[in-house]
Simulated assay, not measured.
Amino acid sequence: MSWFGVTPLKKFPAPVLGPMAPFFAAGLVIAYGINSLQGALMQSDEWKNDPRNIYAKNKAATH
């Protein structure tokens, strides 16, 4: 079935994942870096006793 001469499920032999692999890898590196930075900042002296700190809640529940 065509709509104005365009078939909706036509397969094009264009590589997609290969050229995008560096961007996927960079996204993983950035996500890991943000997660590590956030974890380090949550354990800093400024945020150690903040009620929004998930590490402080876990310490209060265990102690």
Rank of each mutant, 00 (worst) to 15 (best):
N49I: 00
E46V: 11
F24W: 15
P22Q: 04
K11M: 00
K48A: 09
G33T: 01
R52N: 07
H63G: 07
E46W: 04
E46P: 00
Q43P: 00
F4L: 15
M1D: 03
T62G: 11
M20Q: 01
F4V: 01
W47L: 14
V6T: 08
V16G: 08
V6I: 12
I30Y: 00
P8R: 10
L17S: 06
W3C: 01
P19N: 03
D50I: 00
Q43D: 04
L17D: 13
V16P: 09
P13Q: 14
I54G: 06
D50T: 07
A26S: 01
L41G: 05
G33M: 11
K57H: 13
W3V: 11
K48G: 01
E46G: 08
I30H: 00
V16Q: 15
K11R: 11
P15A: 13
D45K: 13
D50M: 08
P22C: 00
P51A: 13
A25I: 11
M20F: 07
F12K: 04
K10W: 06
W3A: 08
I54H: 05
K10P: 05
F4G: 06
P13R: 13
L41T: 03
T7F: 10
I30N: 01
N53H: 04
M1K: 09
R52W: 02
S2N: 15
M42N: 12
L41K: 13
W47Y: 10
Q38A: 06
V29E: 11
L9V: 08
P22V: 08
A21K: 02
F24L: 12
L9D: 11
T62F: 14
P22R: 14
P15N: 13
Y32N: 13
L41A: 08
R52H: 13
L9N: 15
S2D: 12
A21Q: 15
A25M: 09
I54M: 07
A61I: 09
G27P: 10
L28P: 02
F12I: 01
K48Y: 11
P51N: 06
Y55D: 02
M20W: 06
R52M: 09
M42Y: 14
S36G: 02
Q43C: 04
K48S: 15
R52T: 05
L37R: 14
V6E: 12
L37I: 00
S2Q: 14
N58Y: 11
I30M: 15
A14M: 01
G39S: 11
H63E: 15
K11E: 10
T62I: 08
T7D: 05
